[in-house]
Nucleic acid binder design. Structure first.
Lengths: 241, 241
DNA sequence: ACAAAAGTGTTGACTATACACCCATGG
DNA sequence: CCATGGGTGTATAGTCAACACTTTTGT
């Protein structure tokens, strides 16, 4: 079985996804560990079929890893240094070649494919982390959420890719009102504020934050949420439009 | 002679440049006319050498067309629909094949190369139009400046590429203080304002514009410019830092 | 009643914009 | 001295952040 080939995929061009999730007051990123030794971590990525657009390729890759189809997704930067070559993965796969020979994975041409220089289109995605059950591909050993402030060392420029994606996310959070994609359907104002604080890594004034967000006129106020705590019950909100 | 080949260039990946210039109160874009019939217009573009970064490839392409090396240049979007195939140019070159056979241009493999689907990385550049003497490549019939509001119909999605580049330029004009790249070394406040008005396609209040720009503390005021006109002589300014 | 967290109001600083006026220059 | 365009000042409205106060809930 061939994993990749020029007939069906565009050569030397890849897509890497920075998938952001949010839980426990922390902004997280989905990172794969490749099934080779020594251990190697990478961003979820893939290649572009000859008959699909790059945006659809990114969505396909996301669906393979998260199971989700309707995701906020944005292209943010292309990484194209000439030294973008997957040495670690290539050599790791070589050492595992015998072990997997019966399965025919990885085959010769796929190995050759992987050894090329790649230009990679960076996408970032925002997902409701509760809806995601990370899946691993054939090459993955595992796929897990890491705090964006505490990522493992990844191959090539993948850590830089996350930095650039975070910059873009911060710029777009207000402008494009995309933060809600990281939360469940309904949420309290405090939860939204904590999300913003996790993304920007700094505190916001509670009353001013509430005013700013409500003035955007994109939230629908629902019934109150009784938590059982000894204080006033907060309203629930839903993103509107 | 081979124009393109997989040995030296990345297959199915191209760069297209929206080169902005400014003259006669009008924002302009450099557009090539390909040397085939019927006439076909395109943005200046090219391919990526195996040993160069995509940013350097874009600079090389820009130098080929403008002669300039030190240019403001920014990657802004990747265009990757599966139907991005150069039908017009491919067929135009086919009809010219006999005519050029003695020169060996275009050769078979270059034709095949050009007939593929291409993913294209869009760059936009800002140049001082007075310093540019547009050059044409072997495939061009001409290269000329067109008003951004009055562009010819170009191949594929190249008109869309300009629209997206203009959006990005507008977003970045204030934020990154890049407007000065479109003007000569020294300029008057009125000239700068006229540039902004051409880019945004709307008028600005004269005094407030001056205040806003000067408050940025990026302009150095030079001597006055005596124009011979029957009015107060304006100051010249230079971009600083 | 009290602590805790939610919700709302008020102020003062800063910014953007509209209006007004003065200055230099050549005819 | 006047028309023209350049430069600057002021007042008003709108925005943003700090502070203060009130309300609701369970113990």
């Amino acid at each position: 079985m061939k994993l990749f080939d020029r007939q069906n995929f565009i050569h030397q061009l890849s897509i890497d996804c920075v998938i952001f999730g949010y839980a426990d007051l922390v902004l997280k990123v989905l990172v794969s560990r490749v099934n080779i030794t020594p251990a190697v971590w990478t961003l979820p990525g893939g290649f572009i079929r000859q008959d699909e657009s790059i945006d659809l390729a990114a969505r396909r890759i996301l669906e393979e890893r998260t199971g989700l189809t309707d995701i906020y997704l944005e292209q943010y930067h292309v990484f194209g240094e000439p030294n973008r070559i997957n040495h670690e993965i290539f050599e790791g796969l070589l050492t595992l070649k015998e072990k997997w020979l019966d399965m025919g994975i990885p085959d010769e041409s796929s190995l050759h494919w992987l050894a090329s220089r790649f230009v990679s289109i960076g996408y970032y995605a925002l997902v409701d982390i509760n809806k995601v059950f990370p899946r691993k591909t054939e090459l993955d050993e595992s796929a897990d959420w890491y705090a964006v402030t505490d990522l493992p060392g990844m191959i090539m420029d993948h850590n830089l890719m996350v930095d650039r994606a975070l910059e873009t996310l911060r710029r777009n959070l207000d402008e494009k009102l995309i933060g809600f994609n990281l939360l469940p359907e309904t949420f309290t104002m405090r939860e939204l504020q904590e999300l913003y604080e996790a993304v920007y890594n700094k505190p916001f004034a509670r009353n001013n934050f509430q005013k700013k967000i409500l003035d955007l006129n994109v939230l629908e106020r629902l019934e109150k949420k009784f938590t059982g705590a000894a204080n006033k019950a907060p309203y629930l909100y839903r993103f509107n439009r």
